[in-house]
Design a binder for these strands. Sequence first.
DNA 1: CAGGATCCCGCTAGATACTG
DNA 2: CAGTATCTAGCGGGATCCTG
Lengths: 144, 144
Amino acid sequence: MATTTAAQKRAQEKMAYDAFVAACPSRKLLDRISNKWVTLILAALGSLEVDEGCAGGPRSMRYSELSRLLAGVSQKMLTQTLRSLERDGLVTRTVTPTVPVTVTYELTDLGLSLHEMMRGIKAWAETHMDDVLANRDTYDGRVA
Amino acid sequence: MATTTAAQKRAQEKMAYDAFVAACPSRKLLDRISNKWVTLILAALGSLEVDEGCAGGPRSMRYSELSRLLAGVSQKMLTQTLRSLERDGLVTRTVTPTVPVTVTYELTDLGLSLHEMMRGIKAWAETHMDDVLANRDTYDGRVA
DNA sequence: CAGGATCCCGCTAGATACTG
DNA sequence: CAGTATCTAGCGGGATCCTG
């Protein structure tokens, strides 16, 4: 049918992907980025540079720096998560052939757009921790 | 010590919680909210009302509505996730003793603040799906 | 330093069946 | 309608050992 109404076009553009639909690829993508390590890594990259308003920094970090900053992360999860982020084009991996080798991870522009949100999520968790804790006490008290 | 400098106070307030620290409670909270179903449920609640700019809507939804909107979610995960959200004070659960019973879930003010971010995450996944897909093709092509 | 490879445990998502 | 209860397969993720 060559007859496509404006409403149909609009609907197609707006609904190209919908994470509420189980089969939609964006559901899987949402599952990937809704992940503790993804959130922390994306929040970490570039976070050092923006400490005092230096927004134009290189937003990159070395493997060992990440490993130290994200306390408690295993090498496996760190590497695994970084790989998936690299595959999705959110970070770039750069190997500098020094001795020993130096590997840096840097946010791409795509990754940067998500970085903002992840910092927001992390900040939310930190600033509302007390509220949540209080709510849990209330809830548990009511049940018990 | 009664002598607390302004800088100390400021540092204490700012760093009260840090999700980069493994033992910090906010790390666990971050893990909870960095979850597919949490994201989808929080993004869903109130999403119907704001469709056309009605921001003051009741931002509530019935169990069955959520179940239908979040295609593919099992009752177990839906109930379980809703319980944890209720416990953390992000949603309220209201039982109306009709026949059969009606249960509605509504965002609290705390939940609303996270709702905004979750909608952002969901929208990000949907709008950047094509970019990510293209990046994966490039990456897989380079490796293969 | 920055991983790769393996083993293995625990939890949790998902399916199924039942209920007030 | 809105759950609860139970079971199980699968994998997320930690620990350990090894390498260029």
